[in-house]
Structures are given as C-alpha cells and as structure tokens.
Simulated scan of single mutants.
Amino acid sequence: MSALLAIAGTRPLRRRHRTIAQLREQGFCLMRQMLPQAIVEELDQDIAERFLDTPFCEGGFYGTRTKRFGKLLIRAAHARLLAEQPAIVAIARDLLEPHCDTIQLNVCQAIEVHPGEIAQVPHRDQDMWHGPKGTHEYLLNVMWPMTPFREANGATRLWPRSHGEAALAPPPSKAGVAIECEPGDALLFLGSTLHGAGANTTTTPRRAIVTGYSLGWLKPYENPWLAYPPDVARHFPASLAALAGYSQHRPNLGNVDGQCPSRLLEPDIEDHVAAIDALTPDQQAMVAEHVARERSDRT
C-alpha cells in the first residue's frame, strides 16, 4: 500500500498552495489525474459489483434512483488509497487544523446515480452540524469519479463562491455549474459550498466515491467505530486507523478509560489502566503552572 501511495500521489507544494487558494476563492477545485487509471478501473469494478445487490435509497434527499453504501475501507480494494491520498490529506490539514487538534475521516462512500434520477436538492454538508456558520470550515469533501462525469449523467453541480460567509446569505437564484471530469480526477469542495448531484438523463449510471475530512472534534457522518470496529481497524496502518477515529483529540476528547482509543488496537489490552492527560500545549502550561503553585503553597 505504501508503494501505491507513492505512485498515486505526491504533488508539488506549489500545486497544493494553488489548490488551497482556489478552494478559498471559489469554494471548490478540480485536480486532474490524481489516480492511475489501473487503480480507478479496479475500484470501479469493486463498487460496480457491490451495487448490483445494493437497493435504491429511500427519501428525497438521497434520491430514489440512487444507490449508496459505506464501510468502503473494507469493501473495495484500494479505497484506503483514496482516504490517505497524501496531497489531499495535506490540503485538508492545511484548511481544517487551524480549528482543531487533528482531522478525521468524515465519510468514505460509493454513490451510483441511475438513469431517471432527478437533480438533488442544493445543500451544504456543513449543515449536518448545528454550530455557527461563516467563521470557519467544518469539512472538505473529495468526489472521485469512477465513470466520466457529464452534465447529462448527473455530474456534481456546484455554486461558485457560495461558501464561507456567503453561506449565510439566501441561496443563489441562478443554477449551479455541472463539473465535468474524468476517472482519476478529484473534485474538492468545502463543506460550506452549495452543491448537489445533477439529474441523470442518460441510459447508464454514473458512479463515484466520495471521501471527506472534518474537524476532529465533530461527530462524523459515518460512525467509524461501528463501521470499523477494533478487530477490523487493528489491521489498518496506524495513520489510517487514526483518520478512522482511533485518535484522541486534545483535550481528552474521544478517550477510552482516559487514554487514546488506539490502545484498543493493541494485541493485549490491559483492563486496568491509568487515565493520562492529553492536553494542548497552552493547557499543559496552564496546568503545570497551577500544579507548581499548589505544591509551593503546601511547602
């Protein structure tokens, strides 16, 4: 897997900065040829086969002519490659980590939009969370086409510059832009960017995988500990396990018995353990000063 990561993915720092600038300016960015065609073909074969037995979604939001399934890290070969694509994870960290201690994998899901599906309601994924909007980003989404994206087959529609503070304004009256792209490309868009799947007016489905990264202190869209319980996650690389929820977010958030949940991935787990501080540097300094003062007063 490490060799595949090297093949798939490191892009120059200059490209990363340019991508971040575009995300901040217009709310989305298309990165071309981020995956080798051989990997795309294998991924598409994996999800196409599983979609055969996956029923259509229920409800107007997901779409009644659309199929979706998660748990992709264990259901599709090389899905881990998407989740840990180095250049994109670096972009997610640059965008999100000013507002959190660490990022997390918010979703890793396969989507198949069938002929006859209507356009999805325009929405912003940040509205999953009820916190204040317009001050910082909650997540970064990445759409990976497995089949060509065309306006006619339901390519993702995006509303340029509808992100950030603009998300507080009424929705734009004009139509969004259908982003046409190819398998191997990566379409990045912010959680505050207005978007939605288009209508599929063709005779064939269009397929994609969406990965997303959110602030580490949020409850993620896909419950990672149920999707990837410890007996599954212990076979992940440590970096992927951390993205999938087996990481403590300072201060002390998401712990198990006062320790990082990654301890659940160890072969021999002690039942009686000591809770251990996991604080940010400023909190650690504040606590150390307090402890020193208290001890000094006692002497």
Score class of each variant (00 low, 15 high):
P86G: 11
L215V: 07
T202G: 06
N223I: 14
P261G: 04
R295G: 12
L139I: 08
D297M: 12
R32W: 03
Y228R: 01
L139P: 07
T135F: 11
T299R: 14
I91N: 00
H17R: 09
A90T: 12
L30E: 05
Q33L: 10
E137D: 07
T193R: 00
K219W: 07
A186T: 05
F189R: 00
E84I: 12
H17F: 10
P12H: 15
T135D: 15
M128F: 15
P12S: 12
L279Y: 07
K219G: 06
I88P: 00
P261Q: 06
A166R: 09
P171C: 12
T203E: 13
Q26K: 06
H78D: 07
P145K: 00
P251K: 14
T54Y: 08
A119K: 04
R80N: 12
M143E: 06
D127A: 12
H114V: 10
L253G: 14
A152I: 14
P98S: 07
V256R: 08
L72V: 04
L81F: 08
R75E: 10
I103A: 03
N255V: 13
I269Q: 09
A169Y: 13
Y246F: 09
V40E: 03
G9C: 02
R65T: 08
G184N: 01
V142H: 05
P220W: 03
L95F: 05
P205A: 06
P261E: 09
Q259I: 06
Y213W: 13
G198D: 03
Q33G: 10
I276S: 08
L23P: 03
Y62R: 11
R68N: 13
R250K: 12
E117C: 10
F61G: 04
I179H: 01
G164W: 03
V210G: 02
P171W: 05
Q120I: 00
R15D: 15
W129K: 09
R157M: 04
E25R: 11
L52D: 15
V177T: 10
F236Q: 00
H195G: 06
Q248Y: 08
D257C: 13
P172Y: 05
D44F: 01
A197I: 02
F189W: 02
D185W: 00
P160V: 13
P237T: 13
V273Q: 09
N200M: 07
D282Y: 11
P55L: 09
Q126K: 06
I209P: 01
F61N: 10
L279I: 06
L23C: 03
A275L: 07
G27N: 03
T66L: 04
S173D: 12
H99P: 07
A275F: 07
C181H: 01
A6G: 11
H114N: 11
T203H: 14
A233D: 03
I269M: 11
I88G: 00
Q37S: 15
L95V: 03
V40I: 12
I20K: 02
E151L: 10
G27I: 04
G63V: 03
L4W: 10
C260I: 15
L95Y: 01
T10P: 15
V113M: 13
A197W: 00
I276D: 06
H235V: 14
